[in-house]
Amino acid sequence: MTTPLTGPPRAVLRLHRTALIVWGLFVTGTIAGLVWLNTVTADSARAKSARCDPLAYCADPFANTSYSAPISWISTFICYGFLAVAAWAGAALIGRELEQGTARLAWTQGVSPARWLAAKLAVPALVLTVGGIMLVVAFRWGWAANRDLMGDDWAFADVFVARGPATVAYALCALAVGTLTALLLRRALPALAVSLGAMWTLNFFLERYRESFWPTVTRTSPPEFEASRSWWPLENGAIIDGRRTQDVPYWECDGTSAENERCLDDLGITGHYTTYHPQSHYWPLHLVETGIVLTVAAVATLIAFRLLRRRTTAPAVRKGASV
């Protein structure tokens, strides 16, 4: 444990120390921000709101936003931070080295291509995992600490990712996808753009179909009922002739409540339903998504290694043949 870091891992850290510093500042700055917001800002915002009886004149009726707005920004940055990782991995980590030929130089210095790529992936993966875990742990605490001041809930797209291991999975996937695109394109700027686009697309579709990663719950009952605030509501409507429909012509019914009820009966409404995810589905949903993202990461890594091996062995064979 006391041996100093040597060889390729040391080179990776040295070469990308700017990125390491930026990442370190992001992690520590975000954690410090969460602590500050939950200790200082939350109390002052609550004190301001308490003093802010609208009947007794208050200067700042929206004091809560001094707490909730930065927390929302933090959840956005933690969730979508993987886009920066994708850009960096595509351009700076691999693309630039292949474009400028420094990768080839390294391979002639006794570092095999596979070891070179392994170091290029392992060191950032470790740094991202450690920092990502710190961010997630801090965010889980910071997001839950003052719920009364917040207007979001667990199903918000960025909060959903930032509260669990999917944050780390997306970062690792971005690293792998950036590496693969850079190996394919062998140029820094195109790799940056393609890797960013690929990760954005992956996230776009996962976000869109997130709700279907675990079976939903449907609650039906004859009278109308109010959805719990902890649910992620997906669809609600009425049951007409045993069929669920969202297309209920409520506007046809008007008048006293008795008339209204009779009218709804005439429409054939026998009940109401709501399809939703209860809060207890958070972990199943989250872990399925994490699994998908990690699978993409693993596949991209595997292809990257195979591609590199094929590319670095082929010229040698050809050279051998020509001699």
Binding site: P54, L55, P61, F62
Partner: peptide, 21 residues
């Protein structure tokens, strides 16, 4: 002066507040 965010003058309390201000 700043808007206290009380709401409409339809409520007696708000009317009172506006008078006081």
């Amino acid at each position: 002066i700043d808007n206290p965010g009380c709401g409409s003058t339809a409520t007696a309390e708000c009317r009172e507040l506006f008078d006081r201000l």
